[in-house]
Amino acid sequence: MKILPYGLVALVMFAIIVPAMAFAESENEVSEVGNIHEKQTTATTPQTEQEEHETEHSVKSDSSGLILFVTVAAIVSVVVYSAWKIYKAKRKAIAKSLV
């Protein structure tokens, strides 16, 4: 019966989407509460302190981005290097068999 796999897939998709939506909603609530709290603190804290906090945050995100970039670059280079090595060995074997 073909309906069983399709039904199962639909059920699985539904089960995945519903908790994800609930999770996203709770995330929104948290960010809303965070925004209200931020507004309250900005009214009380001096401007220089806020600027310092912003610079620290941007430096932190820059270094995190760099780590992610280095990781992805390393993995891509490893995969390309391995593939190139296999291709080189295969080409050598083909050339040897032709001679």
Binding site: L8, V9, V12, A15, P19, A20, S26
Partner: peptide, 23 residues
């Protein structure tokens, strides 16, 4: 017969973990 179902079921297995992690 349906190899694509297995990864989906694995994802389904981990979804309740996300909700559990909230408390």
């Amino acid at each position: 017969k349906n190899p694509k179902i297995l990864p989906l079921l694995l994802i389904l297995l981990f979804i309740p973990a996300v909700a559990y992690g909230e408390d």
